[in-house]
């Protein structure tokens, strides 16, 4: 048949695993780390231990979800840490100093995040400035606003807010989680649905594959760019709210450097930094790997700074892995 001529497939790695390879590698890493901890340290493996991994990292999961969208288009968002900080400041100030209701504060905070993100996306698209530098300005702006609001941290005592923050949900067997975990997992689920079952989501992948092609195929590149930065801004603001649940305070120094953790989680989770390939679930696994590193280092009685070194090494390993596995695929330009 005529197709015999054309049906040449590349040899080498089986095709299925190539796309999923980085994610599977991360998953394997996570499992190995967990097994290592279980055999090495007493009391490591427990239901609540796993639950705590989610509780302690719920805000990072949400931020990483937003970052995944941006990186999938081939962009980057350095402002997320500052937006998390700004969100905790706005929330604590409005709740405590202004006495606003939590039901009003939360939408306001989310709106601020979306607005900042949307503006950055618009500047990136319409003025063709590198995302790196635009979101750097956004980071300065958001962090500066934090300090303009106040240089001191403020505890949150609002009744409804602390209720949501402190209430736990029993999962049986004495294991409990917080509402933040539910919110984070919901964000992951929504992100998954958006990325895989909406045109917006597919446009995100298409843009990351080749912006030029996306344009020639008539896809709405402007709308998609603005949307992903808006989503990232929204996720950062939501992450900020979760963080303020977690800390029950707002501080202008909150989440300095969080953007690095988020980027690391996304990369370790198997998303290509040039865009076009990756999964939001991978990013969640990436966050869990980071969290597990922290846990193991605590159990091993090592100083906390080994966390950063380990994350750096993992980042290196995964970037190298990306170059090896995807060496044949040239970045779309």
């Amino acid at each position: 048949m005529s197709t015999a001529v054309l049906d040449k497939r590349p040899t080498g790695l089986p095709r299925v695993s190539q796309r999923y390879f980085p994610v599977l590698a991360t998953l394997l890493l996570l499992v190995l780390m967990y097994l290592f901890g279980t055999f090495q340290y007493e009391g490591f493996a427990s239901g609540q231990g796993v639950a705590n991994l989610f509780i302690d990292n719920s805000y990072l999961i949400v931020v990483a979800v937003g970052m995944t969208f941006v990186i999938l288009t081939g962009g980057i968002d350095l402002s997320v840490g500052a937006v998390v900080g700004l969100s905790t400041m706005v929330a604590s100030t409005l709740l405590e100093d202004r006495g606003w209701s939590a039901l009003l504060v939360i939408p306001v905070v989310l709106l601020i995040g979306c607005t900042l993100g949307g503006l950055m996306g618009a500047v990136i698209h319409y003025y063709e400035i590198q995302p790196f530098i635009v979101t750097l300005a956004g980071m300065f702006l958001a962090r500066g606003l934090c300090y303009v609001i106040s240089t001191d941290s403020q505890s949150i005592t609002d009744g409804l807010y602390s209720d949501i923050a402190l209430k736990t949900i029993p999962l049986g067997g004495g294991v409990v989680i917080t509402y933040s975990v539910i919110v984070a997992l919901a964000a992951v689920l929504v992100a998954y649905m958006v990325l895989h079952y909406t045109r917006l989501g597919r446009n995100v992948y298409a843009m990351g594959g080749s912006k030029q092609s996306a344009m020639l195929m008539g896809l709405p590149v402007a709308r998609t760019t603005i949307a992903v930065y808006t989503i990232s801004g929204f996720c950062a603001a939501l992450g900020g709210i979760l963080f303020s649940f977690y800390a029950l305070s707002g501080s202008p120094n909150t989440a300095i450097g969080l953007e690095l953790d988020a980027i690391a989680a996304v990369v370790i989770g198997g998303t290509l930094l040039i865009g076009g390939s990756g999964f939001v679930l991978g990013s969640v696994i990436g966050v869990l790997v980071l969290g597990l590193i922290q846990t193991i280092i605590t159990f091993a009685n090592l100083e906390s700074y080994f966390t950063r070194i380990t994350i750096g090494l993992l980042l290196f390993a995964f970037i190298l892995l990306q170059r090896l596995v995807f060496a044949r695929r040239s970045p779309g330009s």
């Binding site: 300005a137 980071m139 500066g144 934090c146 303009v148 240089t151 202008p252």
Partner: peptide
């Protein structure tokens, strides 16, 4: 507030 420099830098 010294940290307001950040706002200016953003600008």
């Amino acid at each position: 507030n010294p940290n307001a420099t950040l706002l200016f830098k953003a600008f």
